[in-house]
Design a protein around this nucleic acid. Structure first.
Ligand SMILES: [Mn+2]
Ligand SMILES: [Mn+2]
Ligand SMILES: [Zn+2]
Ligand SMILES: [Zn+2]
Lengths: 142, 142
DNA sequence: GCCGATATCAAGAACTATTCCAATTATTAC
DNA sequence: GTAATAATTGGAATAGTTCTTGATATCGGC
């Protein structure tokens, strides 16, 4: 075991710095989990998962890492009602479909050419920084 | 002062029962505030405001009333990020524009004929129960 | 109008996701 | 290497909300 990163073939390469954020070991591992588990985990989910690789990491650090990654636009924070925040590494513009039966959260892309803001009667002069679209429902048995 | 409800001309008439929910004095007053202050108040906002008319009401009761009204589809609960829940008496399908400068929340109607679900690549078989759309931004000085 | 059953309310305690704090450890710049 | 800076840790604090318990009010049947 000499090589450091190519041992595991499916391993994700993470650079030392992403958009100005120093990628410490903790931030790397938190980010790696979001990349590999694309099911919108909570901070606590990430915490439990990351302990396999960093047994001494604290929940506060997981929160710190997630906040740093969100602040630098590397991941997104997603909220449903009053539930715990969830985190998403998908940076393309998308919404979230929340399956009420399974609890699974599906990413939902916009159909090509769609501009959501055009569908809305916005207050005059409104400049939009961010749109969030959330759907609740079930997936019919097929 | 003999009449009970027509003293104040702008007063809102509230029936004894709405969609199966007994409209107790507390629920009436909570609902009245939402009707008259259409600025999406928090539970605490409602609590402070309602104390003028019901000095002995408790915050727990305000929460109970709001929950009962939401459960019966008489008002809607609106969440922004991790902030306190806000409450909205506008039952027509609409979204919310959150002005980052003033903090004001504007109701945003959909343009006529728009069906948001048509704009999205939903997972196959998805049946939507509820759509929520939230915008953050500023209103340009005009 | 009374009575037991049921619903609602009030006050405060409990809960829980998240943030804050202070001490330690790691990294950077020189 | 050393000083300055940034990140991490563990635990305490915070805050919005929910829960619990006892008191009050309302309802349906008589
Ligand atoms: Mn999960
Ligand atoms: Mn307010
Ligand atoms: Zn997502
Ligand atoms: Zn509204």
């Amino acid at each position: 075991m000499v090589s450091t990163t190519s041992e595991v073939s499916a391993e994700i390469e993470i650079p030392e710095e992403i958009s100005g954020l120093r990628m410490t070991r903790q931030r790397q591992e938190v980010y790696r989990i979001l990349q590999s588990e694309r099911n919108h985990p909570t901070a606590n989910d990430v915490f439990m998962r990351v302990k396999d690789r960093l047994p001494n990491i604290s929940l506060a650090t997981v929160y710190n890492c997630l906040e740093a990654l969100v602040q630098h636009g590397i991941i997104r924070q997603v909220n449903f009602e009053r539930e715990s925040s969830r985190y998403c590494p998908n940076l393309s513009e998308h919404g979230h479909f929340h399956d009420e039966v399974t609890g699974i959260i599906h990413d939902v892309d916009f159909k090509s050419g769609v501009n959501l803001a055009d569908m809305l009667s916005l207050p005059p002069g409104a400049v939009i920084d961010d749109i969030e679209i959330t759907l609740r429902g079930k997936i019919a048995i097929s």
